[in-house]
Simulated scan of single mutants.
Amino acid sequence: MKNIPSLFRFFALFWILAGIALANNPSVAKESGKQYAESTQGNNSLMINPMNLKLYGGPEVEAVKSWGINSPDSIGWGEIFTFLQGHYFSSIFALVILFTILAFLGHYMVIGQKKFNHGKKIRVFSTYNILIHWCAAIPFMLVCLTGLIMVFGDKLGGGVLVRFARDIHGIATIVFVIFGILMFLMWVRNALPKAYDIEWLLIMGGYLSQEKKPIPAGKFNAGQKMWFWICTIGGFVMATSGAYMFFQFADIETLRIMALVHNALGFLIIAFLITHIYMAVFAIEGALNAMIDGHMGEEEIAILHKFYYKEINA
C-alpha cells in the first residue's frame, strides 16, 4: 500500500511526458483532434497483405482514425472493439472460468455426486459414435485451451508459447470442423428439442437434489442438447470468424465484428465446456464410461433418461 502514491506519481509523469512527445511529433496531425499520419504514401509498402489490399498500407493508416476511444473520428465498430479488446475481454474470460468452477465446486460440496447401480449395463453408443465424439472433442478442447492462452498471452509473457498456441489453435480448428460435421450429422436427430425438455429445464435436470426420481429426457437431456448446438453451430461460427481474422480477407469493420462475435461466443463455449466436463467426470459416478465403452447402467438410464428408457424397452 505504501507504494501506491509513488506508482501514481510514476504514471502521471509518464503520461505528461508522453503528451509532450505527441504534441511535438511532426508525423501526427493536430487538427480536429485527429491522430494519424499526415502522409500515407510511404506506408503502402509496409506489411502488404496480398489477400486484403484494403487492410494494410495507406488505407490502414487512414483507418487508425476510428480506433481511438472518444476520438472525434471514432466511427463504426472501432470504439467498442478497442474498448472491449483492450480492457474487458480477458477479464470476462477470467470471470467466466472462475464463477463457473466455483458454482460447480459449490454444487459438489452441497449436493454431491449422483450414484447409480451399474450392475446391469445397456449399450447406448456404438464404436463409431465413440470414435467421432473423441475425434471432435479432443481438437475442440485444444482449440479452447490454446484460445485462452492467446487471450491471456500478455499475462503469460507472450513469445514462443503464445505463437505455438496460435499454430495449434489453427490446426486443431481444421480437425474439429471435419469431425464436427460428422458429429453433427450423427446426432442432430437426437438433439432436436422436445416438449419435455422444458420440464427438464424447470427442474434443472434433477441435479439440485439427490432424489432418484425419473427425469424427463430422451437419449440426450435438454442440457446435453444445448451443449450439442453450442458446440457444433457455435463451433462452426467460431471457426468462420477465426478464419476471417487469421487470413484477414475482409475490410477493417468486418474484422472487428468477427472479433466481437468470436469473443462473445467464446464466453458461452468456455462456460458450457466446463459444465460438460463437470457433468461427465464429477456430477454422475461413472458417466464418462459411456463415452469409453459405450455402456450405461440401466438404473442411470431409467432415472436420468426416462423417455429413452421407455423407447429401448418398447
Rank of each mutant, 00 (worst) to 15 (best):
G86V: 08
A29S: 15
I92P: 08
N129Q: 13
K115W: 02
N221C: 07
A21M: 09
D167C: 00
V261W: 00
H295W: 14
V96G: 05
G158K: 04
I303M: 11
A239P: 08
I284D: 00
K306R: 14
S241D: 00
L304E: 06
F236D: 13
F8A: 13
L46D: 04
R163C: 00
G58K: 07
I284C: 07
F93E: 02
G218R: 01
D167T: 01
I257D: 03
M109I: 15
E79H: 11
I16R: 07
W134G: 10
E299I: 10
F104L: 02
L22S: 07
G33C: 11
S209E: 03
G57I: 03
K225E: 01
F179D: 04
I101L: 15
M238S: 15
V177W: 06
P139G: 05
M258T: 03
V124T: 14
M258S: 08
A94K: 06
V61E: 14
L273P: 08
N289S: 15
A12L: 15
I171D: 03
Q210F: 07
K213L: 09
K194R: 14
G68R: 12
K194E: 14
I171R: 02
P5L: 12
I178H: 09
E199W: 01
L98M: 13
A191Y: 02
I97K: 04
A243T: 12
S6F: 15
V160T: 14
S45N: 06
R166S: 08
K120V: 13
A165G: 07
A195E: 06
C231E: 13
W134M: 06
I171Q: 03
L17D: 01
F228S: 01
I69N: 11
F104W: 15
S74K: 05
D293F: 05
F81Y: 13
R9P: 00
S27E: 12
F307A: 03
L288D: 14
G286E: 06
I292P: 06
S90T: 05
I16M: 09
D197T: 12
E38F: 11
L131V: 15
I97G: 06
V281Q: 10
K155W: 13
E79P: 08
V177N: 05
F247Q: 02
A12Y: 14
Y278C: 08
A18H: 04
M204D: 01
G58R: 04
N70I: 05
V177I: 15
N263K: 04
L182I: 12
A172C: 08
G78Y: 07
N52T: 06
M183Y: 13
N313W: 03
F140V: 02
K306S: 10
S90H: 12
M291G: 11
A264L: 13
N263G: 06
E60Q: 12
W187P: 08
F11C: 08
F104Q: 01
G266K: 04
M51E: 03
